[in-house]
Structures are given as structure tokens and as C-alpha cells.
Computed example of a mutant assay.
Amino acid sequence: MKINMLVLPQIENALGVKLYLQQKNYLLSDGKLFWWERGSGKTLAYCIRLALSEGEPLDMRYPERFSDLDYSHYSRDYFRRMFMEVWSKLNDHGFRVREIRQ
């Protein structure tokens, strides 16, 4: 799904959050993550983009294969929980989310 300015408020509503400007800019662009500060909302923005992306089903047994960082302990725990929460909320609000395998 191509994310645009009209979809951003719907995403915020589905997730119950107000996105930061840098998160919105990232979601509206086709670029890579460009900020790395801890607590900046980078992982949330990445999870939104990934959940709304197209492609092969994501195998949740191996989240390190598609997480935004290259740390297996991070991928297996924190990233998987955050991604599944984002994915579930978007799915519950009628967004077409990427298929997953568990």
C-alpha cells in the first residue's frame, strides 16, 4: 500500500498514537531510515511501513530476517512484539496488511 497524507490520520487512529514529523516523512517517502536515536519512533515507523508493504508472507519465526536492526535478541523479542501489535491494530481497522506466517 502506498502511504499518503490522507492515510496518515487513519494509521494514527488505528494505532492510537500521534506520529512524529520524522515518522510521517519516512512513511511518505521511499527512502531508508535516516535517524537512529533511541526512543525516536524509528521502529514503530518501520513496523507500519512493513505491515502495509507488499511481498511474500513474513515468517514471524525469523523476524531477524526483516527487522530494522541487525540484533537477533532485539528481533526475536522487542521487534516481533511491536510488529505484531502494529500489524494486528492495522488489520483490525481494515487496512490491507502483509500476510504473515507464525
Rank of each mutant, 00 (worst) to 15 (best):
A51E: 01
V7W: 07
R65P: 00
S72T: 10
S88F: 05
A14S: 09
G55M: 08
Q23C: 10
S53W: 05
S72M: 12
L8I: 15
K24N: 07
N13T: 06
K2V: 05
D92G: 00
K18T: 10
H93V: 04
L6P: 00
R49A: 10
N91E: 09
P57F: 13
M1H: 07
E85C: 06
L50G: 01
Y20N: 11
L44Q: 07
L21M: 13
G55F: 07
R98A: 07
F83I: 09
N4H: 14
M60I: 09
F95Y: 09
G39Q: 12
Q22H: 15
L15V: 01
V97D: 00
L69V: 06
S29K: 08
I3C: 08
F79C: 09
V86G: 02
M60R: 03
N13M: 11
S67V: 01
Q22L: 14
R80P: 00
R76W: 11
L8C: 08
Q23E: 14
E37F: 10
S67F: 01
W35L: 14
F95H: 06
G39W: 12
S29R: 03
E99V: 10
R98L: 05
R76E: 14
D59Q: 09
Y71R: 14
W35P: 03
L90I: 10
E85S: 11
W35V: 13
N13C: 06
N25I: 08
E56H: 09
Y74I: 11
R49D: 02
V17N: 05
F66A: 04
L33N: 02
H73C: 11
L58I: 02
M1W: 02
E54D: 14
R61I: 02
I3E: 02
T43L: 12
Y46I: 10
L19E: 03
N13D: 11
S75A: 15
D70A: 14
Y78A: 15
G31P: 00
Q10F: 09
Q10E: 12
S88A: 08
V97I: 11
K42G: 06
I48S: 00
E56L: 14
K89R: 13
A45C: 06
M1C: 05
R96P: 00
Y62P: 00
G16P: 01
R98Q: 03
I11Y: 04
F79Q: 11
L28S: 05
Y20T: 13
K2A: 09
K42Y: 06
D77T: 15
Q10G: 08
L15T: 00
